[in-house]
Simulated assay, not measured.
Amino acid sequence: MQTAATTHFSTHCLPADKRGSCWVDVVNRHIINLDCPDEPDTGIDAELDHFDLGDIRFNHIRASSHCVQRSNAHINDDGRESAFMCLILEGNGFACQGIRGSLFNVGDVLIYNTVHPYSLGFPDKTETMVIDLPHTIMKEYFDSWNQKDLIHLDRTLDVGGYSTANLFNIVQSWMQQDSASNEITCHRLLEQLHGLIHQRSLGNNSRSLPRLLQKSKAFINQHLQREDLSADIISQQMHTSSRQLARAFAIEGNSITRYIWNQRLERCRNEILGSSGHKASISEIAFRWGFNHSAHFSRSYKMRFGETPTETRQRVLRG
């Protein structure tokens, strides 16, 4: 298992009538100010392992039926500003923040902003990993962060290489003392979260984006030799806007221009490596695939493949 928790706390040995207040006190001190209304007669049987990873904090919670709420009063008394990413490891329940409420189940991920009121209810035994992401960290990845409504990432969400399952895998690897450092773990989590929230922000049209991306790539690959190949031409052919087209390529963290550029470089390299490439000059090959400046082409080629076009040809001729 991972190194010992910074803090470990359990209500197991406490009298039933003391469990709730003690649990709230621990959460307030180590996580965030809130309360647990409607405490069961048996109290809250709960356990916390709190890990400080430097930039972010992990809070591994196992608890019996309970609910939590954070009000404006708590927010006014507590200056901590974070986004909480809650991974549901066991159990189900209901969460609400802003104008959004959502039922959640095992494998889902919830994100809520601690500077706005929220509530969560767990009707049965639950296990969660609540990851504390300070606003200063969130702003590094999202430019700004003022989310007011609950974000619910379904356990089946998997788009463009980002998925809720990846978030769980990263956390589970860390808990099993994977070789990844805390810094790498934090970066991997935030990179996945950024990708998932970006996909969510695309709105209802996001379901069509992977198909748009696939069709656009096919069109580009068929027309790489067109000198006028551009985002405007492609968006016209796809019957969509340039902005929507850019969103489609952003699924893979790419841009239209970069994709076209890389595909042209690949075609040039394939031709230089092939036997037909020996008959044409490197400049002729570059111009054939849409490059207008030999020097620029040569620099771009070397940046991508680690050698100049001439060095590629010489290596092939020697071999």
Rank of each mutant, 00 (worst) to 15 (best):
Q2L: 11
T3E: 15
A5R: 07
T6H: 14
T11N: 12
T11F: 10
T11R: 11
H12N: 11
L14I: 01
P15T: 08
R19F: 02
G20N: 10
S21M: 10
D25I: 00
R29S: 15
R29P: 12
H30I: 00
I32N: 06
C36K: 01
E39L: 11
E39N: 08
P40S: 11
D41N: 12
I44N: 05
A46D: 03
A46C: 10
D49H: 11
F51H: 13
F51W: 07
G54T: 07
I56P: 00
I56K: 05
R57I: 10
N59G: 05
I61H: 02
S64M: 02
S65Q: 11
S65F: 04
S71C: 03
A73V: 03
H74S: 09
H74K: 02
G79F: 04
S82P: 00
L89Q: 04
C96A: 14
I99Y: 12
G101D: 12
G101T: 13
F104G: 06
V106D: 02
G107C: 07
L110K: 02
L110Y: 03
I111M: 12
N113V: 07
N113Y: 08
H116W: 04
H116G: 10
P117N: 06
P117R: 01
G121R: 06
P123S: 08
P123E: 05
D124I: 01
T126F: 11
V130D: 14
I131E: 04
L133T: 01
L133D: 01
P134H: 08
H135E: 03
I137T: 06
I137D: 02
M138W: 03
E140P: 00
D143Y: 13
W145P: 04
D149W: 02
I151A: 07
H152D: 09
H152R: 08
L153P: 02
D154E: 13
R155S: 15
G161Y: 04
S163M: 04
W174I: 00
Q176D: 12
Q176E: 14
D178E: 13
A180K: 10
A180L: 09
S181Y: 02
N182E: 14
I184N: 09
T185K: 08
T185V: 15
T185E: 05
H187M: 07
L190V: 01
E191C: 09
Q192R: 03
I197W: 10
R207Q: 14
F219N: 05
Q225Y: 03
Q225A: 12
E227R: 05
E227T: 07
L229E: 01
I233T: 08
M238Y: 03
R243D: 14
R243H: 09
F249R: 04
I251V: 11
S255L: 08
I260V: 15
N262C: 14
E266G: 05
R269P: 04
N270G: 08
N270W: 06
E271Y: 08
L273Y: 05
L273P: 02
G274D: 15
S275Y: 09
S275Q: 13
S276R: 09
G277F: 06
A280T: 08
S281I: 00
A286L: 03
H296A: 12
R299N: 05
R299V: 06
M303A: 15
E311G: 02
T312F: 04
